[in-house]
Amino acid sequence: MMAFEWIKSSYSGTGETSTCVEVAFAPQLAVRDSKAPDAGHLTFPAPAWAALVASLRD
């Protein structure tokens, strides 16, 4: 299994009540739930992630 360097948004807050996802940049982008980091992660090709983020900004 590949080791990821997970990054959490500064907008997500801190503590047990924060709700967010973490991302890791590797050959593909990985996303996981910060409250359940051992539950697994999803991977996306970088262009698909960029399209998702762009659509959320619109």
Score class of each variant (00 low, 15 high):
residue 4 F to I: 05
residue 5 E to N: 15
residue 8 K to R: 12
residue 9 S to A: 03
residue 10 S to C: 10
residue 10 S to V: 15
residue 11 Y to I: 04
residue 12 S to E: 01
residue 13 G to K: 00
residue 13 G to F: 03
residue 14 T to M: 00
residue 15 G to A: 00
residue 15 G to N: 02
residue 16 E to W: 12
residue 16 E to Y: 09
residue 17 T to Y: 11
residue 17 T to H: 07
residue 17 T to A: 10
residue 19 T to K: 09
residue 19 T to A: 12
residue 20 C to A: 13
residue 20 C to T: 10
residue 20 C to Q: 09
residue 20 C to P: 08
residue 22 E to H: 15
residue 23 V to R: 04
residue 25 F to G: 13
residue 25 F to W: 11
residue 26 A to M: 09
residue 26 A to W: 06
residue 27 P to C: 10
residue 27 P to N: 13
residue 28 Q to P: 03
residue 28 Q to S: 13
residue 30 A to L: 10
residue 31 V to E: 08
residue 32 R to G: 02
residue 32 R to F: 10
residue 32 R to N: 06
residue 33 D to C: 07
residue 34 S to A: 13
residue 35 K to Q: 13
residue 35 K to L: 07
residue 36 A to R: 15
residue 36 A to T: 13
residue 37 P to H: 05
residue 38 D to T: 15
residue 39 A to S: 09
residue 39 A to E: 12
residue 40 G to C: 04
residue 40 G to I: 05
residue 41 H to N: 04
residue 42 L to F: 12
residue 44 F to V: 06
residue 46 A to E: 05
residue 46 A to K: 07
residue 47 P to E: 02
residue 47 P to C: 01
residue 50 A to F: 00
residue 51 A to T: 05
residue 52 L to Y: 07
residue 53 V to L: 12
residue 56 L to G: 08
residue 57 R to F: 07
residue 57 R to V: 11
residue 57 R to T: 14
residue 58 D to F: 05
residue 58 D to I: 02
